[in-house]
Design a protein around this nucleic acid. Structure first.
Lengths: 229, 229
DNA sequence: TAATCGAAGACCCTATAGGATCTACGAATT
DNA sequence: AATTCGTAGATCCTATAGGGTCTTCGATTA
């Protein structure tokens, strides 16, 4: 009823499949759906109290994000966690795209953007660092917002698509999710360096600082992976 | 019946939605579905002689490729053609991703890859240059194959996703589709330069030659756009 | 003649039904 | 006791039905 009510209440007509999509996305990001577990279409339909049809459509859209994988005639399952090698590949890909985003965004940055970036850093600083999902979420959200702001202000829809294709939102979360936030102090300092470059309007410097940041994330993530294994 | 037969003949059970997806993709790439025209779910179901359900699923998947756009409660339509500005943005994005692909692919290239690249160039050279779709398709396919080989052999699933997100296959086709193949001689020469770098195992050179190639494509495309408008 | 109204069709969206396949589990047999 | 068989349930996939909205087009009216 939870979803259905909002729709059938009829104040503003909406598409049920969109609600299901958002619901599934939230469940995946909150960790309610763990990596590797199957996602039954019929089962999810019962759980959300809708018919299988919109669930099927939502999952079809979700597949392109890499959050779920589909096997023909066998259904969907939550994508597995990354191996250390895949993690390194992800960072290499970010090293290709995000410095370019930083350069372009800085090339035509306005005070509004720098203010929003500063706010994202401030939110990062003040976010709780607890290991629980609910606490961690604020931290992750601020980190994601910083990078996404830059990607969006690069003002190139294709680069933004490429950034999205990396699973910028999700994959990063799922990686950090299992670990503690050992990253925080470093990330805040490195983000601040990038912000400085933006404030100075030095696009080339912004590119370099972004490279340094992601190199740092890569090294720290590899270290954490080794510790865990 | 065309599609249905293959499925219900039951030799190997298949998913109808996958067939519909392939069928729609082919129709989009052949130009049978022109830019901007609406794609009715029910109508397409009648045309392909299936129910609307698999069509709906296929379109949901297709949306992530950028080939079709969806408006809630109003259905799908074929994505509009590019403006010159969007074309420039696309080339800028390619300039970010494809040189990196070339560098990485060249870093661990094997004779098999260089042979396949050489074959792609040879196919490019021998392809007909006629203005009709069917003739042009062979040329475009060889061009696409060259770039995709490099992207796939960069051996990084995330960079490959990013490359795919550019609509590497499709967007490029849709751009060239309306124009003559004024590009051919230049493209063959530039591809050959890239191949030489691969044969020499010089990754840095491969990166540079890829940059030169895409810069060339960008300039020529802008020139063509001006001529046409 | 121009404008308005209404009916019919197209279309999107969701629910439901039913067929096919796979899995799980218990009973019967060796 | 182990194995085989069969049945019940779960699941995926597709078709069909029906509700709601929008557009179109013709008829009626001012």
């Amino acid at each position: 009823m939870a979803i259905k009510d909002q729709a059938s209440r009829g104040i503003s007509r909406q598409v049920l499949a969109d609600h299901v999509y958002e619901e599934l996305l939230a469940a995946l990001m909150d960790g309610r759906l763990e990596a590797g577990t199957p996602v039954s279409i019929d089962g999810m339909a019962r759980e959300l109290e809708v018919s299988p049809t919109p669930v099927r459509e939502a999952l079809a859209r979700l597949e392109s994000t890499g959050m779920v994988r589909r096997t023909a005639l066998r259904g969907y399952r939550v994508a597995p966690l990354f191996t250390p090698d895949e993690l390194a590949d992800l960072m290499d890909a970010r090293l290709v795209i995000e410095p370019a985003n930083a350069f372009m965004a800085c090339s035509h940055a306005d005070p509004k953007l720098t203010a929003e970036l500063a706010k994202a850093i401030e939110d990062l600083r003040s976010a709780p660092r607890g290991p629980s999902f609910s606490e961690f979420r604020a931290y992750w959200e601020a980190d994601e917002r910083f990078h996404r702001l830059i990607a969006e202000n690069a003002d190139n829809q294709f680069l933004l698509s490429a950034y999205n294709a990396l699973g910028g939102q999700v994959q990063r979360f799922r990686f950090f999710g299992g670990l503690g936030v050992t990253d925080a102090d470093f990330a805040i300092a490195e983000h601040t360096e990038i912000l400085k470059a933006f404030e100075a309007g030095d696009a080339e410097l912004a590119r370099e600082k972004m490279i340094e940041h992601i190199e740092g994330v890569k090294q720290r993530s590899q270290h954490d992976s080794e510790v865990r294994s």
